[in-house]
Design a protein around this nucleic acid. Structure first.
Lengths: 340, 340
DNA sequence: CTGAAAGCGCTTACAG
DNA sequence: CTGAAAGCGCTTACAG
């Protein structure tokens, strides 16, 4: 391995100080440096293939220009797209991203954060798994800049960038009501995650507003670990009760995919026999026979806002807290429209 | 922001040298250090919440224990799964992953590599975009350890971890032949990427071996940038020629998805009217009415092998070159089986 | 068993 | 306009 060229090498060859080399190569103090000397330094740096050592710089300035990105699960396309946007946006601000997938485990998430703290990232963007409250408030206590994205915990007074899950779900439910469906079921994940409970709440609020009494009777919450079987069962129950449902609202894309597979196997036609709305997009909808109505999250805006907020937070001494809420969009397709 | 505790702080409080603190906290020289002193150091470190500064360590040892991961496109689920596996595997070896998405641009890829080199990553795992040959041989010339994954360039004598694309495609084609289909079309991307041309070559070789003369007549190669329209056109041509095809082999999952959408819109039934095999999995197949036969790449093995190879390469002075080829698996489902 | 010291490659007040 | 010097937080031969 060839030795890397350092500023010192350049300085020695030219008989100048490393200070000067540093100033020139960083474009600082340009007006008070001899043009000739500056040019010589630049040429030699180019010639020797000088690459700045960011590690040394980080140590000196006590900043790494690095963001730690903790995702609940990178293999989820939603998370992957977000990762890409965040990386892009970070680069615009000269930041680099180190990422880790917490696999929905608070323990793994803590482990990751510990590792990345050793590596002195300047701050974190976190899609937190269930049970992270303690970890997050400890981060806050240590004055480590971070921003929660997608998931959040209302009791924690921290930076967040999220969508209005309540509003989006209410809107989706209202859309179904407007289409003339009154018996609307919802299948959601049973989890202590605010963004999910907000979705259930939005659904129920819309039903209440429409004058329905037992607004929770058609809401089914399934366990993540037993998801497939419970989704099937939930659908069966909703369809076979005294007042069968006319529409289903799925709380996320994975639930929707399993649900649609099951519905097709029952030979139930969409939208003729049953209307469908899903939270979140999925590539998979493309190959379903009926175009699916879904709630689209503004991914690019979410990612960009998170990076912007984090960088502001890194720059500020007083830790003010910011909560950014973005609106999702209901993309209406055939699956939710009353068959004419 | 609280000041971070350093080894020096601990040393001063205890009246010992930082050297001793370093040895104890790294578990070195354990047999020749006073147990009491060691215990005191450990306790105080714990009490003060000492976190090692990896940046300083990296500077000193001239290693960052960091891998740069360059993916052609992170928003592709294939890449995202790979990223997760690589991150996991790297962590087992105490390595951290910094990633970047090159978005299929050689220029962006070069930019990313430059950035990550400044950050002194120890090596790279790269899924290279078209046109990267020059960049890669320059990396090789600079003795920077790297491993190509998925994509590779046969003329470059560098480390690779790939699947046997030729073999997998031949196997898929043979499977269709065995099912009794003789007129088999293939739709592939037109690109100067070895892993893609190998897929075409495998398809043609299987046809030749089966005694077919003009083995390229049913091979359609489409441009990435005009993919949707060209896939539609290719399918139309293959179906409307004098000897219409009985089966289509898609060269990757994105082609397959567009193709299946178009085939459904033509009211062509799978597998009754047309058999289908696809290269690569996709979540989307789940919602297609007919289970799809596809070639599954051994993602976990690919990722693990790449990390292992890279770390060996980082450790070795003499840069020996290793080419690891893994076999893919044909998952046979209804879409490719002759309707009985 | 332990410490003094050099040095990794930078940045940045300070002095001239 | 330019240089000498300190220092970021570690590791590691070396000396005792």
């Amino acid at each position: 391995m060839k030795k890397n060229v350092s500023m010192k090498d350049i300085a020695q060859r030219l008989g100048v100080s490393t200070a000067l080399v540093s100033y020139v190569l960083n474009g600082q103090l340009e007006d008070r440096i001899n043009k000739d000397t500056a040019q010589k330094i630049k040429s030699l740096a180019e010639e020797l293939g000088y690459r700045p050592n960011h590690v040394a710089k980080s140590l000196k300035i006590n900043k790494t220009l690095t963001i730690g990105l903790i995702l609940a699960d990178i293999s989820n396309p939603f998370a992957a797209s977000l990762a890409r946007i965040i990386e892009d946006e970070a680069k615009k601000h000269k930041y680099t991203v180190i990422f880790g997938s917490a696999d929905e485990s608070a323990h793994k998430s803590e482990d990751l954060i510990r590792t990345l703290m050793s590596r002195r990232v300047d701050g974190f963007i976190i899609a937190a798994p269930e049970g992270s409250e303690e970890l997050l408030s400890s981060l806050k206590k240590q004055d480590i800049p971070f921003v929660l994205i997608d998931r959040y915990f209302p009791e924690l007074h921290v930076n967040t960038v999220t969508i209005n899950n309540f509003q989006a779900s209410a809107e989706a439910t209202n859309h179904l009501l407007e289409q003339g469906f009154s018996e609307i079921g919802m299948i959601n994940l049973k989890a202590d995650l605010f963004h999910l409970t907000e979705r259930s709440r939005g659904y129920k609020a819309a039903l209440t507003q429409a004058g329905q009494k037992k607004e929770g009777k058609n809401l089914k919450e399934v366990e993540e670990k037993n998801m497939i079987a419970e989704v099937h069962q939930a659908i069966n129950e909703l369809l076979n009760q005294p007042e069968p449902i006319q529409a289903i609202f799925f709380g996320n894309n994975n639930l929707a995919i399993e649900g649609l597979i099951h519905i097709r196997s029952l030979n139930i036609r969409i939208p003729e026999d049953l209307a469908i709305v899903c939270f979140d997009e999925s590539n998979a909808y493309n190959l379903f026979y009926c175009p699916i109505t879904y709630i689209r999250q503004p991914l690019a805006k979410l990612g960009q806002a998170a990076v912007k907020l984090l960088i502001e937070s890194i720059g500020n001494q007083e830790r003010s807290t910011n909560n950014i809420t973005l609106e999702a969009e209901l993309i209406i397709q055939k699956s939710s429209q009353k068959y004419i």
